[in-house]
């Protein structure tokens, strides 16, 4: 991916207030590039969900955005607890978020399902106790 335009963002795990910053910055960059509004919208929704997941479950992590002429790939990587059962986590409404997080209005169990809905491809690589890497793919010339 050496030809790709690459941006890196640290997702700060200490604060909910900062969650979403990487997706807002990414949105600005994509708009500057002239990416279509529909794709920008999908990316900002999916990436925001990913950032929130990293803050809730994994004390933050790294967000990397790779842009080529025909594909945008977002890689969200954390060294959190990993996802025990991916199939279950993909079900709408399934959540392992603690009560205090839900009280904030997060952890409704829509994170992963929304990320899948708002991406062309989603790849999850996770290992319990090691961490999770999620790739979101967008094809620009559909």
């Amino acid at each position: 991916m050496s030809e790709a335009l690459h941006y890196h963002f640290d997702v700060d795990g200490a604060s909910f207030a900062n969650a979403g910053r990487a997706s807002v910055e990414t949105k600005k960059l994509l708009r500057q590039l002239g990416v279509s509004p529909e794709i920008i919208r999908s990316i900002s929704v999916a990436m925001y969900e990913g950032e929130i997941n990293m803050v809730i479950h994994a004390h933050g992590g790294d967000a990397d955005v790779y842009i080529t002429e025909d594909t945008i790939i977002i890689i969200l990587k954390d060294v959190g607890p990993g996802i025990r059962n991916v199939e279950e986590a993909m079900k709408e409404g399934f959540s392992t978020a603690p009560e205090n997080i839900r009280a904030l209005g997060f952890g409704a169990g829509m994170g992963l399902p929304n990320m899948k809905r708002y991406s062309d491809e989603m790849h999850i690589d996770t290992k319990v106790g090691v961490g999770t890497t999620i790739e979101l793919w967008y094809h620009l010339n559909k």
Partner: peptide, 11 residues
């Protein structure tokens, strides 16, 4: 109306 390829090179 940016040309995405040109804009990518610039960015």
């Amino acid at each position: 109306a940016p040309n995405m390829f040109k804009m990518m090179l610039a960015m």
